[in-house]
Amino acid sequence: MSAPTAMNPVEPLLRSERMPHIWCPGCGIGTTVNCFARALERSKLPLDRVALVSGIGCTGRVAGYVHLDSFHTTHGRAIPFATGLKLARPEMTVVVYSGDGDLIAIGGNHFIHAARRNVDLKVICVNNFIYGMTGGQVAPTTPLGATATTAPYGAFERPFNLPFLAESSGAVYVARWTAYHVQHIAHAMAEALQKKGFCFIEILAPCPTLYQRRNRLGDGLETMRYYKQHSVIRNGASTRDLDLGFQSEITVGKFVDIERPTLQQTMEAAYRQALQQRYAGWRA
């Protein structure tokens, strides 16, 4: 850093001409993008060979702000789009960056199947417990008792425990952090970028405009303070024990880091075994 000019480390990743972004003051999504920029830098991956795929929603807008081959797809379908892209361009690193509503509600079926197949995707889920873009509706992650515009008397459905869902579906790397844990997020993202297979990182982030305000939890900064005070790092914890309640303690950490052949590896092995020399490989 002794160069005569200094640049924000996130800048090479940004489509700067599109700033300022649409995210609200105190929203945590931009913070996670900083972490992603640091992780990419550490990974030494050539940026021309990294694609980022988002669905719809506030986090879905990440694709529009990163200077990569970036795809803002349809609601819930980032993972199957990314699956097609990865199979057609195996040499690329394909990152899926989206929100909890997009990945887990409307896209839940694709999420579990991509994990089952072990598609080589890096799935980053910014979980703010709410539908932000559409104005604060209840999500499959909304803690019991929290209110939302479509749960005005409090959420009464049990929310998903995302790390448990990811692990039981077959993910090979599972971590959860909050937007407060910026160094850990960057580290986890860098690990995922280097790892083969379906990697899942959940990042709890404030939605001050819709979740925190409606639930009288203060602004983004107060939420970040809450994360700092109420998060407990338990690396290797059983994902069964990671349920989140309303303003409960938050267990964070890396929970799963295993090896399992990827979809492409199992596909190629099956073809090679059955067809031997007749297997033509992938003709791009």
Binding site: V53, D69, F71, T73, T74, G76, R77, P80, F81, A82, T83, G84, L85, K86, L87, A88, R89, M92, N109, H110, H113, A284
Partner: peptide
């Protein structure tokens, strides 16, 4: 839903 967008992802990968 997955089939019909997986092909679009593949198409952007040159397939």
């Amino acid at each position: 839903l997955a089939s019909s967008i997986a092909i679009l992802g593949a198409a952007w990968g040159g397939a």
